[in-house]
Design a binder for these strands. Structure first.
Length: 404
RNA sequence: GUGGGAUUAGCUCAGCUGGUUAGAGCACUGGUUUGUGGUGCCGGGGGUCACGGGUUCGAAUCCCGCAUCCCACCCCA
């Protein structure tokens, strides 16, 4: 038997399928209310795109990409995340030159060659949004509120963690400062942190090693080293969130795993889905468009991990809906098929192809959760009528077929 | 990539220290005296016990390997 590849799942059970489509519908509707429109970009991109945007020092690019050479000799890979492709499309279509604001949302599969566990698949789905051209910190706040809206609409509880990563003015001096500090404790920190010191020193801050964490308690904090503008924007962000009843925790060690983030960084986490607890994450990436050869354009976005959210969604009750048709005599089957097709123009409708007794039709109608069970037997066939029972109200009547 | 656990019917699981045709509940399906469901009763189908080796007279059960899932590390959505 041929099986799906490791870490690549089918979404096909009734419940999963229902949850998945419900999520997409809900998130799409909310994104559209916020003025975002759908963008679809290729699953396959040039490898260089991710190396330059996500960053070579990140694990995602360093060891998790599905990378290969295509038949034309191009170095390509399956997208490990969504932002890079959207930014590429933004620049390629010269929207950076067009000016103004551009707001997109997307959803689709992402690929990372990781060791699978609960909430971590090799092919997984994200829903994300990207906003270009807005420098104002209000946009950052609105992004966060949008995530909160989506999670709220789905009945999902969360904790919001917030940090500021600084900008090109205040980040580099801080980084130097931090490297100096790391060197002062270098002999005691873990191997990973020693490596991080060289590749991406900021990442030592969210090291999970307890010993490292205790050493870093005295590390300089970026949040205390922000320049005036970053400082005031971060303060403003908190004010806006407070005013809109969004509760958050400041996590000075929150470092996004992708190198392109600056200033606002946030992560929504859930305590109910195991160790892979990040359900949404995002932030500002004002420098990325420029890095990818576009005109400097401020931008901010987020992504949500759909599989991680699925089991947390509080689904609405399923209610009886639509029609079920059945025939009790062979001669009536053709008639109910025609009636079903007619009903399907406006309503959900299904039917039984075999002539069966009434009890069986009622059972089947109940099983498919139909609201109305409509049956034609010999009496009805003769009189050109149809027997209809409302399975919810338990009311039944026989009506002329035209009245259905 | 590292360590640990699991793997028996579509699903959730039993199966004692190896012993004949591997079980249950749910699900599916058929019937249930003249046309009434979700909630009665009776029946039926479905498993090379993940896969590959080995030990044994005999393996779902013991041993080795392998795959996948789960948990932790790691990483991140």
């Amino acid at each position: 038997m041929i099986k799906s590849l490791r870490g690549m799942n089918d979404i096909l059970s009734y419940e999963e399928s229902r949850r998945f489509t419900y999520f997409i519908q809900t998130a799409t509707e909310i994104a559209q209310r916020y003025g975002f429109h759908y963008i679809e970009t290729p699953l396959l991109e040039e490898t260089a795109l991710f190396k330059r945007s996500v960053g070579e020092s990140s694990d995602i690019v360093g060891k998790e990409m599905y990378q290969f050479e295509d038949k034309g000799g191009n170095d390509v890979c399956l997208r490990p995340e969504g932002t890079a492709g959207v930014v590429r499309a933004f620049i390629q279509n010269k929207l950076d030159r067009a000016g103004g604001t551009h707001r997109f949302f997307y959803h689709g599969p992402m690929f990372r060659y990781e060791r699978p566990q609960k909430g971590r698949l090799r092919e997984f789905h994200q829903f994300g949004v990207e906003s270009f051209g807005v420098e104002s910190v209000y946009e950052d706040a609105v992004m966060i509120m949008m995530v909160a809206d989506i999670l709220g609409a789905l009945g999902i509880g969360y904790r919001l963690q917030l940090n500021s990563l600084g900008c090109k003015e205040c980040m580099p001096p801080y980084r130097d400062n931090l490297v100096n500090f790391i060197e002062s404790v270098e002999s005691e920190i873990c191997e990973d942190c020693q490596r991080r010191k060289l590749t991406n020193p900021i990442r030592v801050l969210d090291c999970k090693n307890e010993k490292c964490q205790s050493l870093y308690e005295n590390a300089p904090k970026l949040i205390n080293s922000l320049c005036e503008r970053c400082e005031s924007d971060f303060a403003k962000l908190k004010t806006i969130l407070d005013a809109n009843n969004i509760t958050y925790e400041i996590d000075t060690n929150l470092v996004r795993g992708l190198d392109y983030y600056s200033k606002t960084a946030f992560e929504f986490v859930s305590d109910n889905i195991g160790s892979q607890s990040a359900i949404a994450g995002g932030g500002r990436y004002d420098r990325l468009v420029e890095f990818l050869d576009g005109r400097p354009t401020p931008a901010v976005g987020f992504a949500m991990g759909i599989e991680r959210l699925l089991e947390l969604i509080e689904m609405p009750e399923v209610s009886r809906e639509g029609y079920f048709f059945g025939a009790m005599d062979e001669e009536a089957v053709d008639r109910i098929i025609a009636l079903t097709q007619q009903k399907r123009k406006t309503d959900k409708a299904s039917c039984e192809y075999r002539a069966r007794n009434l009890k069986n039709h009622l059972k089947s109608a109940d099983k498919v959760n139909a609201r109305y069970c409509c049956v034609i037997g010999s009496n009805e066939l003769e009189n050109n009528t149809i027997w209809v029972k409302d399975l919810e109200e338990k009311i039944e009547k026989t009506i002329r077929i035209e009245e259905l």
